[in-house]
Amino acid sequence: MRPATVENPAAKPHTLSVIPASAATEDQLTATTTTTTTSATTFEVTVNGEPHATSAATLDALVGELDFAGVRVATAVNGDFVPAGAREKTPLEPGDKIEIVSARQGG
């Protein structure tokens, strides 16, 4: 995993997510508050069965953070498929279980 830097694309969506907080629901407000108060806004998720600390606010940001941007992968969060086009709108929460898969040999 890469250390969070200014260039990290993952950091941007997170910053953005704080701005429209006034329009957010109570649940989202709580989540926003949690992420802003936690140290450097990192939280733990599980990626492909391994624990992973991230500051990615969305699945799309996480995929970028892991260097899969532009790579043909498919994703699921907590057992549900997330199409590539929906990753940007899929917020991540602490404890989320994320699968990132690609093509392989099969029988």
């Binding site: 492909n48 069965g49 892991l66 260097d67 899969f68 790579v71 043909r72 992968v73 498919a74 699968e99 990132i100 898969v101 690609s102 093509a103 392989r104 040999q105 099969g106 029988g107």
Partner: peptide, 22 residues
């Protein structure tokens, strides 16, 4: 031919290479 999918680990290269071959 039958194919499958698996957790990607090498920054997408394994899957991409296999897809290209197939």
């Amino acid at each position: 031919v039958t194919v499958s999918l698996r957790r990607e680990t090498a920054r997408g290269k394994i899957g991409a290479r296999f897809l290209e071959l197939i």
